[in-house]
Amino acid sequence: MSENILVIGGGPAGLNAAVMLSELGVNVALVERDSFLGGNPKKFKYKFLFPDMQPADNVIGELIKKAESGGNIKVYYSSEVSDFKENGKKFDAVIKSASGSETKTFDSVIVATGFEHFDPARDAKYSYQLFDDVIDIKDLERMMGENNFVRPSNGKPPKKVAFILCVGSRDRHVGNQYCSRVCCTVSVKQAIEMREHFPDCEAYIFYMDIRTYGFFEDLYWKAMEEHDVQIVKGRIAEITSGPDNTVVCKGEDTLLRGPFEIPFDMVVLASGMEGGPQSPEISSKLGIELDEHGFLKPENVTLSPFKSNKPGVFLAGACTGPKAISDSITEGAAAAMNAYTYAVKNR
């Protein structure tokens, strides 16, 4: 008799966990809240991925294809785990979907419920939702993905665009002290993409630290060397409206200019990642710990970042903190290995 393992969340992390388990012959129940698989990259139609600008479809599309092509994975779309109980070393879960509720016993569980994008409207100084031409990186991903890169206010192509880093991250006022890790690289990637496809549109990046960690630094250098992206040190204090239908970024250039007020056709806010409402929900439903940043808490952040504090329940991907797709996929595999070992031991 083969093992039964529950995977909650069908983003990059959950998908890879499910695919690997399926290849081991495990019966996988993949429970996804949305009506489609692929997580945030699919939802916001990411088109090209950092670090190598490969089409997102190579990664996400590939994983979805594997998960949906039958095998041992049963995908529950638009569904949730409505009830969860321990049963000895195993777990009884109720999976609720449009077609009704199903109760099943699982040998182990992988939580891969991911993150939510910070809603920039929560920080009034950026005037998101007040001015049409202030958008954020997920909006821009979607625009690029839909080949619709124009100013929302008038449908015309922008000539000068600002990227503002650390929106909703590293700021006690919004309650997020942590760094969201990917938004520097996403912004640099988007600026390059923009300059490649729309060479007569200028790109500015306003930063307080550029955190294109590891090899992502290549993109940062490339942005300056090959694409003349203007990199200005200074966090924006306020966004106001300017003459000729522009949006004005006001701040201090802490290195060169001193005070500045620069008009742009469009401003892109690098909104960070949050644990979202799903993290506390899953935490209380499954009886696993939440950390002080609003993400799920690993048993030991260094030794076992893929384990929850509850034996038999494993964690993967951005549900434990901001990270890139490659890390999420790696953790999906690590959680799969651990969930499988736990299941086999308690057979």
């Binding site: 307080m208 040190k233 200074g234 924006i236 701040g251 201090e252 250039d253 802490t254 001193g258």
Partner: peptide
């Protein structure tokens, strides 16, 4: 954080060498 938000929002910063 040496981020300059305070100075960006500071009224006299526009008129004097003050941050």
């Amino acid at each position: 954080l040496n981020c300059g938000v305070c100075t960006g929002g500071c009224p006299p910063h526009r008129f004097f060498d003050f941050s």
